[in-house]
Nucleic acid binder design. Structure first.
Length: 372
DNA sequence: AATCGGGCCAACCGCTACCCA
DNA sequence: CTGGGTAGCGGTTGGCCCGAT
């Protein structure tokens, strides 16, 4: 675990890179690849440490970098992934292939964090700052479940990011221009070798089902505390008589979710079950795209495309002059949103939609790894 | 025109995970 | 198994830019 000696050596240049240095580095890497960063500077005739060269390459000179303003979609992606992954910028960057972790980090710190704060959302927890609005019995439980599941999905995304990195390492520099292949490869790798391919994704789908189903139960949370997928996936209702759980019911002979990973029409192996209503087990299909899966659900909860719009509106309205003060109820002090929706419902819906959209994002990223 | 202050971003620093002998 | 070397990550900083005064 020794510390890297790095840039303290005398004679090594620090600070901004000159065009000449860029040219040298670029030319060298184009011809030889970077190989060992430590050895690179001397070979390339640069008075820099390897670390500095690597940074300059990965953050600036790499040919597959998209520069300039972030699109709204990219912003949403960052926010959503940050909600799942936290400050794991490199993991987030793997889902925005043409953006660097440094760029994303900077953009988050200078723009998005402030914007969320303005909106009354805690940029760390991604919850409304006035959390009490959400903490009405079943709600708080559901939020806890949400967080728990988010942790699982977070772990999965991290693993995926790691695989992307590994597959990138195996590719020569000139073949990295589109990290699409790498992402695809990683997903398949994940599906075929990890042994626990897309279960978390399924859990998220089920999660959506839970959110949707919950509303049909007179405010009673439709699910108890959800255990992690590997902890037998059973859930024990807290203070409730019913027990709902996810069950791995098998399917593909390989046991892997190859198709699930790519979002094709393969059959998933997970079912959402209600112990008290075993006949109404709900198969979790992979074709989820914002459509509720529950048979007894009257489709009033339809995340997906709708949310993109509402979320976008929210972002735009908060970043622009027409920003509403969500926390205090706005300039009029009125608890009602313009459309007459009660603020607590407003928060609830937004919170649900917020997380549902993360679900959709993850889902779509599995179907179409390259977002941009 | 000069000064000030805030925003932004490239680059650095320090830590840690990983690899390999 | 251990320890040294390296790459990569996330946090932080320094300096440039630009708008306000």
């Amino acid at each position: 675990m020794g510390r890297s000696p790095c840039c303290d050596k005398v004679g090594l240049k620090k600070g901004p890179w000159t065009p000449e240095e860029d040219q040298k580095l670029l030319a060298y890497i184009e011809e030889h690849g970077h190989g060992s960063w430590r050895a690179l500077p001397s070979k390339a005739g640069l008075q820099r440490c390897g670390k500095s060269c690597r940074l300059r390459w990965t953050n600036y000179l790499r040919p597959d970098i998209k520069r300039g303003k972030f699109s709204l979609q990219e912003e949403q992606t960052i926010i959503q992934l940050h909600a799942l992954l936290g400050n794991r910028w490199s993991a987030i960057a793997t889902h925005l292939p043409k953006r660097t972790d440094n760029e994303i980090k900077n953009y988050w710190n200078t723009h998005l964090k402030k914007r969320l704060t303005k909106m009354g959302i805690d940029p760390v927890s991604h919850k409304p700052k006035n959390d009490t609005l959400l903490c009405t019995d079943g709600q708080s439980k559901s939020v806890a479940n949400l967080s728990h599941m988010a942790q699982w999905e977070s772990a999965r995304l991290e693993a995926e990011a790691r695989l992307v990195k590994q597959s990138k390492l195996r590719c020569p520099v000139e073949k990295q221009v589109g990290s699409v292949d790498a992402s695809m490869a990683s997903v398949k790798l994940l599906a075929t070798t990890a042994g626990e391919p897309t279960r978390c994704l399924d859990i998220l789908k089920a999660w959506d089902r839970v959110w949707g189903g919950k509303q049909n139960d007179d405010g009673v949370n439709g699910i108890g505390d959800i255990e992690s997928p590997t902890s037998t996936l059973s859930t024990t209702g807290v203070g409730e008589s019913s027990t709902n759980f996810f069950e791995f019911v098998g399917g593909n002979s390989s046991g892997s979710c190859d198709d699930g990973a790519t979002g094709e029409d393969g059959e998933e192996e997970w079912e959402y079950k209600d112990e008290n209503d075993m006949e109404n087990s709900i198969p979790l299909t992979s074709g989820f795209s914002g459509v509720t899966m529950a048979s007894d659900n009257n489709n009033e909860h339809v995340p997906g495309g709708n949310f993109l719009e509402s979320f976008t509106d929210l972002l735009l309205s908060s970043s622009g002059g027409g920003h509403r003060n969500l926390q205090s109820g706005g300039d009029s002090g009125n608890d009602l949103e313009p459309n007459g929706v009660n603020n607590s419902n407003y928060y609830e819906d937004n919170s649900k939609n917020y997380w549902n959209n993360i679900l959709n994002l993850v889902n779509s990223s599995m179907q179409d790894p390259p977002l941009f």
